[in-house]
Simulated assay, not measured.
Amino acid sequence: MADGVSVLFYNAMVAHADPSLDKAELMAFGGLDPDTDYPPDFIVPYTTYFALLEKIAEAEKPEIRFYLRTCANFCCDHFGAVGLAWRAAPTLRKSFLRMDRHVREYNSAATFRVEEHDDGYYWVHERFSPQRTGMYLSCEGTMATYLTLAREAAGPHVQPLRLQFRHSQIASDKPLREYFGCDVVFDADYDAMVFSYDQIDAPNLKGDESMWSFFTDHLDQKMGAAGDAPLDLRVVDEVSKLLSEGPPTMEVVAANLGMGARTLQRRLSEMDTSFQSLVDQARKNVAMKFLKVPNYSLNDVAFMTGFSEQSAFSRAFKRWAGQTPGAYRAGL
């Protein structure tokens, strides 16, 4: 996908802008002819899209609602096979399953993942740049869109336990609290919607296992090999494969990905991340995976995550998860 958004999203934001703003002027603001019927694959640069969001938001402060009105009007059908797979999933857990990969059909600038914690099921969104209000509004809108689709799949009662964002509060949080139906936390470690396991595992309204399998298999084939994944996810995957022999060096991982270490370091820096932080993420992912298997001792899990001593593993895990490996396992 090009470095931008489909003109459909730009048009939708303009359509739900405050009535005091001239729609034709907002189209022209993005270099678009209001009388032209642009195809869906026409791309508007992110910088232009973010500037539009900022312009519309300024007219609505202190209660910014236009992007929530936009997100409320999306439905699964707008997202092709991705949306159909989401709606056909038997449960919301399966709606989210593999969505971290399939969503790249519409959003290649951010990464998504699922995390399971004692306090709930986390749908995590990460995008670190550019640091500007338009991107923050886009991040909030991304979460609102997922909630809209979740409510279409499972029912209007779906409500997160908590909503959190890395960025600081932009304006009144009243519109967000009303739309999501929960508290909103800013200045968090990462963006996430947190759901109860009861909601995640309840049957979807039109869930159909065979249809869901059909659409997800179709999307997997369409997305191609794992090399299409964002670089940071590929690094985490490669590190995970090598951890049992100890944490791999950047040179080894870069070579396995077909590039030099300096190139890998530069490209990760452009994504506002580092090789070491991705090694930590891989270790955390592997640890949480194997702690769920009772047959593996804590020493086994420490070895499989690249630690030579259980004490070092326990200290690292407590830094990642806020509790010891034993406490995490006991709470499963």
Rank of each mutant, 00 (worst) to 15 (best):
N73Y: 13
A2Q: 13
V301L: 06
R93G: 11
R315D: 11
R69V: 15
K23T: 13
M135I: 15
N107E: 12
M288E: 09
R329V: 02
D198F: 01
V253F: 01
C71W: 14
P247W: 01
G258W: 00
T324L: 01
A302V: 08
I170V: 14
G80T: 02
L26D: 09
T145I: 14
Q276A: 15
V239K: 00
L137T: 00
R127N: 14
M193H: 07
G306W: 00
A254V: 05
D237F: 01
K61T: 08
M271W: 00
F29S: 06
A57I: 08
D201G: 12
I200E: 01
G181Y: 07
G80A: 03
G258R: 00
F42W: 11
F313H: 10
F112Q: 11
D201S: 11
F195M: 02
V235F: 02
C71P: 07
G141Q: 09
I170F: 08
L147K: 06
A89E: 00
W123L: 08
E54N: 06
N285R: 09
Q131C: 13
A153P: 03
R151M: 04
D187M: 10
H218S: 14
D22E: 06
D272F: 04
L53W: 10
V239S: 00
Q164M: 12
A316M: 08
K94E: 15
R329G: 03
G246V: 02
Y136F: 14
K289E: 10
E60C: 05
T273V: 03
P34Y: 11
S240F: 04
I64K: 04
P325F: 05
Y328V: 09
L26E: 07
Y10R: 08
P160D: 09
T36Y: 14
P247A: 04
R65A: 14
A330F: 10
A153I: 05
P203Q: 03
Q131H: 13
S311K: 09
Q276E: 15
G83I: 01
V239T: 03
D201F: 06
D18P: 12
F307I: 01
K206M: 13
A287P: 04
A17C: 12
N295Q: 13
A15K: 14
P325I: 02
F112M: 06
A229R: 13
D3H: 12
D201P: 06
E270N: 05
P160K: 10
Q169S: 12
W320F: 07
S196E: 06
Q169R: 15
A89W: 04
D119W: 01
D198I: 05
E58L: 10
